[in-house]
Each structure stands twice: as C-alpha cells, then as structure tokens.
Write a protein that binds this DNA or RNA. Sequence first.
DNA 1: TTTTAAATTGAAATTCGTTTTCACTCAAAC
DNA 2: GTTTGAGTGAAAACGAATTTCAATTTAAAA
Lengths: 144, 144
Amino acid sequence: MRQSKQQFREYLVRKGLKTTKQREIILDAFLRASTHPSTEELFLKIRRKHPTVGYATVYRTLKLFADCGIAEERNFGDGQTRYEWTGDERHHDHLICTRCGAILEFEDADIEKLQQQVAFRHGFTIASHRLELYGTCRRCTGKS
Amino acid sequence: MRQSKQQFREYLVRKGLKTTKQREIILDAFLRASTHPSTEELFLKIRRKHPTVGYATVYRTLKLFADCGIAEERNFGDGQTRYEWTGDERHHDHLICTRCGAILEFEDADIEKLQQQVAFRHGFTIASHRLELYGTCRRCTGKS
DNA sequence: TTTTAAATTGAAATTCGTTTTCACTCAAAC
DNA sequence: GTTTGAGTGAAAACGAATTTCAATTTAAAA
C-alpha cells in the first residue's frame, strides 16, 4: 500500500501532473476498499466523508491508477467497469456470483500447473492468464 | 450448422415462439459469419441484402440464440457484446498469443474438474467460466 | 510572497451501446 | 377466413462512460 502510493506519486511527477486533495482522498479510499469497486461504488463510498468530490474526478482518477499500474480494469459482465488493486502481487482468480454480485478470490496451484501443461502441449509460453468462474454463491443457491 | 438450425427451431416451438422471415435471415447471416460479430456488425451485414430488417430485431434474435444455446455472449473489452457460435462442439478456452494475435482453442477436462472442486470448496455452483491464457506462441517465442 | 501558466475540478452535457416502448403486422392455431 | 398473441421497426429511454467548460487550485517562476 505504501508502495502503491509511492508509485502513484512518481507517476504524477513523471507525467507533470499535480497532487491534489481529491487524488489523495480517492487513493486512500481505493486502497482501503476490500472489494473490487466500480467507479460508482467508490464514488458513493467517498461521498459519505467527502461530499464535494465529484463522480468525474473519481472516474478520471481511477483511470490514472490503471495508467500508472497500481490498478487494473476488470469487467465481470455486470455492466460496470471495476478496478482491482494490483499491489498485492500474488496472482489470483475470481469466483463471481451472478445472482448477488459477490466476488471471491482464489488461487489454485494445481490449476496453474495444468495450464502450464496445456500451454506446453501447444508450444506456448504463458505470460499471464485470466480465469473467472461464474455461478451462484452458497447463499444465493439456497434461494429459489 | 444444420444442427444449430434444428436446435433453434425446437427452441422456438418449445417456448411457443414463432418462425419468421427475419429470424431465418438473421440465423443464416449469423451462421455464415466467420468472425465473432457484434450486434451492430451483424446488423450492418444483413442490411446490405435485407434493408428492412431492424436493429432491434437483430438484437433480440441474438439474445434468442444465446438463450437456446447456439451462441454465447462474449465481451472482449472493446465495448461491444459479441456473439460466438457454439457450434455442435463443447465449451472451449483460449490460448492467445500477445505477439501475433493468434488464438488457439483448447479444452481440458482436468482443469474443469479442478474448477468444480474450487467452486465446491467455496460453496459455489458454477454456471459457466472463462479461461484465457496469454503468452507467446511457438513461432513468436523463437523471434527476438 | 506574489504572479502566472497550466493542470484540475464539479456539474452538466454528451456520447454510445443496449434495452424498452408502442402501434402496427404477421404467424399459426382454430 | 378469423382470431389471438407473438413479432416487428422506429423511436424513445436507459445507463454507464466520457467530455466539455467555466471556475478553482497547484506549483513553478518571479
């Protein structure tokens, strides 16, 4: 987290951009968010404490986070772009509940091993991958 | 292809829906498309021969294709929903070469099994998944 | 510290793909 | 043929993403 803040600061300097109160507020809120917030979710969360920060600023700042590498844009098919903090360097995949929108992270070494094998069989060298499992979570499965 | 047409016909009957000229035109065009067309692309393509078919009808009909299982909605991050013919084959995943753009399809039962196990451990019921491996293909790995 | 140029901001407007509405048409069951 | 309800196209509505613009703020220069 401290690392990400530093990285963002350096990016701003490198690009000749400015440090502003809003950017600090948004960065703090983003790093504090445990989930994968969409622009709107983060905006609403921030608004509680800082009612003057506008949606457009949150939107633009999240783009900056993605540009400088401390966040990644993700699209889980609910029609909203979500931002995931990359600082936590360990790769993980996602379980997404299509009923309630819950997102769980997981990692599975065996699956990764099999992916390597598949790639090897096809002569590929894997640089990265994306695995998303869509379905219903425990709570939603119970309901009709 | 003949299979898909049959499948769509049966779906219409089962749901009490009707066979119309437009639906036949759109299905033909979709099956003839080699790419993964977006609604708009398919609409434009169809319009050349059949200027009276409306965008909304193409849109609705593609949804029907997805519902009945002969197509799948896909989102490759270009802001447009694309429809992929599922053919008569089973689900497959993708190996994508980030150097030359080549796309290989593969399926791996073991990986799918492990996915089920992961989901089970988290109380999830999987409806679908998406797995994409990004890297360099055999040919590109050789080059500098 | 004051000045100044350029970046930043919030609110509103705009864009763009998706989805729905509605009056009219058509398929197919009778 | 008549009837009934699904289907259609055009246009409107929708929602998230993006841009515009006048006013504000930053930070470097004076």
